[in-house]
Nucleic acid binder design. Structure first.
Lengths: 136, 136
DNA sequence: CTCTTGACCTGGAATTATTCTAATGTTAGA
DNA sequence: TCTAACATTAGAATAATTCCAGGTCAAGAG
């Protein structure tokens, strides 16, 4: 997994302006691996950057996603979550506590595949829904 | 795959009141395998049942989902889609045309699994994002 | 050093999707 | 037929996201 410094350097190399807001958002995701929502990111950053705007949070997350530096999670209905980790892994969503857990599943037949049924594969989002160990 | 008559009979057997609206919504999903959104379902049904309400569409979809007769799809950000087919299969989402395609992936290591990392698996939502054959 | 230009950020309005609510309608069983 | 429980409706309320117009910042040109 690419650490924060590496990712920032990579972003810079690709010509992306590294504003204080973008830095802060990526750093937040690096430190908080709980798959935070936009809401959570926004309110946490507001403590340090009281003037930050939601639009910036949305724009930056979109930007970082398009660069391939973060991953968007559409597991919870009507709400976006984000993940610093972009290496393929499964997400488990507990519908009781609404938490998202990383899980590792070996032997996925899609791993490394570029095409399926004539469609070009660009991203995998393998979600598992259920009740987590804590809620059981 | 369970056909419409079988599913309706099964619903009835489980004590679910079969209102005209519920019948219509399930039938719509049976006939339209394009993974329609709530919006699409609502406006299509409005042609025949001009008084149908969005709340009913939402309530019925939720109900049918909880009975396990239809599947909810959270692949497109901020929008729900639904699928008549509940047997496990992958969904491919084209981010150009926003269409969702069924794809069959053999050999998924999660097939039939009940638990993972101590979490209870209740549903699989394996999504693939990319560009579909038509858009390529 | 100052000016210009383009990219970025901000606050708030607008839009979109979903849920809630109160009133009314329907159904199945007594 | 009556009644109690359940369903449906329209529209309001809420929640999430996108849009927009104006202000800010930073880097290069002069």
């Amino acid at each position: 997994m690419m650490n924060l410094t590496e990712k920032l350097a990579e972003l810079n190399k690709k010509g992306c302006t590294l504003t204080i807001q973008r830095h802060a958002i990526l750093k937040y995701l690096y430190k908080n691996r709980t798959h935070p929502t936009v809401e959570e990111i926004y309110y946490s950053l507001k403590k340090k950057f009281s003037a930050i705007s939601k639009a910036t949070v949305y724009n930056t997350l979109e930007l970082l996603k398009n660069y391939g530096f973060i991953q968007e999670i559409t597991i919870e209905k009507g709400k976006l979550h984000f993940d610093y980790e972009v290496e393929p892994h499964h997400h488990f969503f507990c519908h009781k506590c609404n938490n998202i857990y990383d899980v590792n599943v070996e032997g996925c037949p899609l791993a490394g595949k570029k095409m399926i049924d004539g469609h070009k594969i660009e991203e995998l989002r393998p979600y598992i829904i259920g009740t987590c160990s804590k809620c059981l």
